[in-house]
Computed example of a mutant assay.
Amino acid sequence: MDFKPLVTLLAIVNPLAIVPFFIHYTEGFSRQQRRSTIVTASFAAFVVIASSALLGTRILEFFSISLASFQVGGGMLLLTSALNMLNAHPAEAKSSSNELQDGVEKAAMGASIAVVPLTIPLLTGPATISTVVIYAERARHFLDLALLVGYGVVIGLATALCFALANPIARVLGKTGINVMTRLMGLILAALAVEVMADGLHKLFPILGR
């Protein structure tokens, strides 16, 4: 059983790093509202990962994009996310604070903040989707795809656990502890990103393997 996809996804999603955002966006919520937000965000994260695993390769085929090209592009995106994390920013948090605030305002007009911006783009964004599609393309059997979808369940549960324990986690780790955890996951993600890019470049340019 290959746990590398799970480790990669945990490094990218990194729900611990999103805990401060969760606390900020749910400030003033009742217990029931916060519980509903946790359930919605966790389920939405699972849906994004499962959809990418089951439909991602078909989208590549529709646009006539080779896996090797997608690996190089996805690897670059992962590396960018890793660099953000090494600077103690969440992997998927590529928007400015003003843009995130706009997202919250839009969410207030219709969609739940559990989906925007907590799930997309903070928890699951382009880097997460790229990673899942790459691993889905490598799947040889239906069991491999089912396992990838199962990893989505694990990510959803990890997200729910971190958000449910948001206040105790913030008190125990503090801002410094969360920053250290984010940088550590960023270092792991950077190594995985280089590996993905190297595999894609080797397929595009076989001469590099000589």
Rank of each mutant, 00 (worst) to 15 (best):
I188D: 12
A93W: 01
L55C: 10
H141D: 14
I155L: 13
A158G: 04
F22D: 07
I120M: 15
M76S: 04
L204M: 14
L189A: 05
G200A: 02
A158F: 09
Y135I: 01
M109G: 10
D102E: 04
M109P: 00
I169K: 14
Q71G: 12
A45G: 15
T26Y: 02
T176A: 13
L122Q: 03
A136D: 03
S36W: 10
A93Y: 01
G103S: 05
E105S: 13
V180W: 14
V194Q: 00
I38P: 06
E27D: 03
A193E: 00
G56P: 13
T128F: 08
P126S: 11
L60K: 08
L161K: 11
P5I: 03
K4A: 08
V194F: 11
M181E: 03
I12H: 03
F22I: 02
L16W: 13
A190E: 01
N167H: 12
S69Y: 09
T80A: 15
L165H: 10
K175V: 08
T131W: 00
N179P: 04
A17C: 09
Y135A: 01
A88H: 14
E92R: 07
D144E: 09
D2Y: 08
M1W: 06
G56Q: 03
L83E: 10
L157N: 04
G200S: 02
V72D: 01
E105G: 00
V132W: 05
T119A: 13
N98L: 06
A68T: 06
E99N: 12
I188W: 08
A146I: 13
F46V: 15
I178E: 11
V104E: 06
V153L: 13
E137F: 15
L184E: 10
L6Q: 08
L143E: 15
A127M: 06
